[in-house]
Write a protein that binds this DNA or RNA. Structure first.
Length: 466
RNA sequence: GGAGCUAUCGCCAAGUGGUAAGGCCGCAGCCUGCAAAGCUGCUAUCGCCGGUUCAAAUCCGGCUAGCUCCUCCA
């Protein structure tokens, strides 16, 4: 396995802390709003990583967090009058449901920030004791970036003159503009406060990941975990700051490897809260089939920008359709084992920093060559069994193709429409048998008008929802 | 203002030194009563300029365009 390490800015061989094991932490969402396509893409990117490692026989430990205490959530409380727990539980539930729809494997642990206040507080106190952090008169605690000689080693964003060039005006009680809050003291009217040795307040954003990783992973003397993952936007400052905290608190690097997924764009623009062009997953799932959406979102390499275009989604669907049509052809029978060359090529592709484009081309070629062989010899049972195994492997690795193939082509068709289709087909069949092609063709036109495609096969006529 | 990424066929997109994978669309053929599905064949010299090299889409420099980060963000 080779992965692109965004801290080293190059592809590197993946050599885990412990042989044949992989410890992975993925930065999850701040749960104050519905998840959008960007959240889906991030989750899906690292879902492919986890699936690939599992197929390669790594024992994977995956932790994905929820940031459930944050200024944005508090703003939402003030807007809606709901409690923190009401808001966060609602969005966590929605998030998990939507990710389940997309076939994203659950984390082994999915901790919330609020379940780790004690751990955060301990780590902050530790950093204060080591003079890597300082408490201000108002009760805030800042990390002192000048105490970390490796600050900037992850994102490479910190330059000598950045503090002067940044567009942001730094005020506050920071000793250094690069310093960041680990703990924010609450004011009197704040409703979300936790006790700590330094002040009543709430944790900053970065500290939760450091604390959770310390809590949930063992690591070794050099690193806490193998892979730390998230969206590119988190590279700086979030991951830089996490790394600094963990480094100074524990003397270990937080992660051996860093992976960051690219952004989803809508019409060429970044999708963001501030632009108000978010495409929420709940809306996307109303329009598109979840599996098709998954297939589309994973079909572009995770580090590239992803420009969401409906036309492209539809062409992705056509590509997935071909897999299911092949599945129809081989549906009867048990799986044997995947074709050796196919499996090797597929794993080689995914092992190269999740090269999905090559993986998909390997699959397309498998589909074409299998169809060709089945055209010549429709009863090739050995091939059929092998193909079933091939498709199962695709399912494990990419999380697509697992549905029963006929039902895949009937999504969105209710029983009423279904019986109407079947009645029309039976009528057409009679007309065809009596060579009344005018009638049979007009029935076909009628079905086409209903977005139903039909195909006559040796075993009778089958239909698909287009 | 600073830092970085990207630029390959109509569209999506692989490919980090040796003469351009794959998918969608299109065209032709096979199959079909006709279709559909499936199969076969056909369609690019890689943003622009210059350099290095026997050889570059691939390395270097410049330019142009788009995007991202430096602020909450996946």
């Amino acid at each position: 396995m080779v992965i692109y390490d965004s801290a080293k800015k190059t592809k590197v061989p993946f050599v885990p802390i412990r042989e044949n094991e992989a410890s992975i932490y993925v930065c999850g969402p701040t749960v104050y709003d519905d998840a959008h396509l960007g959240h889906a893409r991030s989750a899906l990117s690292f879902d492919l990583l986890v699936r690939t490692l599992k197929v390669l026989d790594y024992k994977v430990k995956l932790v994905k967090n929820f940031t459930d205490v944050d200024d944005k959530i508090i703003n939402k409380m003030n807007e809606t009058g709901q409690s923190l727990a009401d808001i966060t539980n609602h969005f966590i539930e929605r998030y998990l449901y939507e990710m389940d729809c997309l076939g994203v494997l659950r984390g082994d642990i999915e901790p919330k920030a609020t379940e780790n206040i004690q751990q955060m507080s301990n780590m902050i106190q530790n950093l204060i004791d080591k003079e890597s952090a300082y408490l201000t008169p108002s009760g805030d605690v800042y990390f002192d970036t000048s105490k970390d000689s490796h600050y900037g080693s992850i994102s490479h964003k910190v330059t000598e003159d950045e503090e002067n060039q940044s567009r942001i005006n730094h005020n506050s009680e920071k000793q250094n503009p690069k310093d960041f809050a680990m703990w924010k003291a609450c004011s009197k009217d704040d409703s979300v406060c936790f006790d700590s040795p330094f002040s009543r307040g709430r944790p900053g954003w970065h500290i939760e990941c450091s604390a959770m990783i310390d809590r949930y992973f063992d690591g070794d003397e050099n690193y806490h975990i193998d892979i730390h993952a998230g969206g590119v936007d988190l590279l700086f400052p979030h991951h830089e700051n996490e790394a600094a905290q963990s480094r100074c608190a524990t003397g270990k690097e937080i992660a051996k490897y860093w992976m960051h997924n690219g952004f989803v764009q809508i019409a060429g623009d970044k999708m963001s809260k501030s632009l108000g062009n978010s495409f929420f997953l709940k809306d996307a799932l109303k329009i598109y089939d979840a599996e098709v959406l998954r297939f589309y979102l994973i079909s572009i390499h995770y580090r590239n920008d992803f420009n969401f275009v409906e036309e492209d989604l539809l062409s992705a669907k056509k590509r997935l359709d071909k897999l299911y049509r092949l599945k129809k052809r081989v549906a009867l029978g048990k799986a044997s084992i995947p074709n050796k060359d196919f499996k090797q090529s597929l794993l080689d592709a995914m092992s190269d920093d999740l090269n999905i484009s090559v993986a998909l081309s390997v699959i397309d070629e498998m589909i074409a060559s299998t169809n060709e062989e089945l055209d010549k010899n429709p009863k090739n049972k050995v091939l059929k069994k092998e193909t079933i195994a091939n498709i199962e492997l695709i399912g494990q690795l990419l999380g697509v193709g697992g549905k029963e193939p006929y039902s895949y082509f009937q999504i969105g068709i209710d029983d009423e429409v279904k019986s109407k289709i079947e009645a029309l087909l039976s009528k057409r069949d009679k007309a065809k048998k009596s060579k009344d092609f005018e009638t049979s063709d007009s029935i076909r036109d009628e079905l086409n008008a209903m977005d139903i495609a039909i195909m006559d096969t040796a075993d009778g006529t089958i239909w698909e929802k287009i």
